Amino acid sequence: MKKHGILNSDIARVLAQLGHTDSIVIADCGLPIPDHVERIDLALKLGQPSFVDTLQEILADMQVERAVFATECLEKNPTVVAQAKEMQSSGVSIDFVSHEEFKQLCHRAKAVIRTGEASPYANIILHSGVIF
């Protein structure tokens, strides 16, 4: 059994297979997931697991160079905005696009990790960096 890091075998596998600039999505429970993109469903009930808890665990195990959020979160979700600012202060490049464009970008993701988050626009696309 693993001693450290993410215990979910699907998430651990996807993170281990990422190359530079590959992307994954962490999504609230309402984001539409394209049929051809792997779905890793963590949702247990509304709010669990949360977007923030899931994001923090992924960030502890993944080298991220860029993140994309929906512009709408700037007005509708201060918790997500706080996460964006925290990531930016740690050197991650942050971009904002319309929610419609965000949904189109999800088609390029290796996987979408669906949380139980039930607040608006609690979604992020994480682009893999390199550790050297």
Rank of each mutant, 00 (worst) to 15 (best):
I26Q: 01
A27Q: 05
A27T: 05
C29Y: 09
G30L: 07
G30S: 09
G30C: 10
P32S: 07
P32G: 09
I33H: 10
I33C: 12
D35M: 10
D35K: 14
H36Y: 04
V37P: 08
E38S: 08
E38Q: 13
I40T: 08
D41I: 14
D41C: 14
L42H: 00
L42M: 02
L42W: 00
L42S: 01
L42Y: 00
L44E: 07
L44M: 10
K45H: 11
K45V: 12
G47C: 05
G47T: 04
S50Q: 01
S50L: 01
S50I: 01
V52E: 15
V52D: 11
D53H: 00
L55E: 02
I58M: 06
A60H: 04
A60E: 14
D61Q: 11
M62F: 15
Q63W: 15
Q63E: 14
E65C: 11
E65K: 14
A67P: 02
V68T: 10
V68G: 03
F69Y: 09
F69Q: 05
F69S: 08
C73S: 08
C73R: 03
L74M: 11
E75C: 11
E75F: 07
K76F: 06
N77Y: 02
P78I: 12
P78H: 10
P78W: 10
P78G: 05
V80D: 15
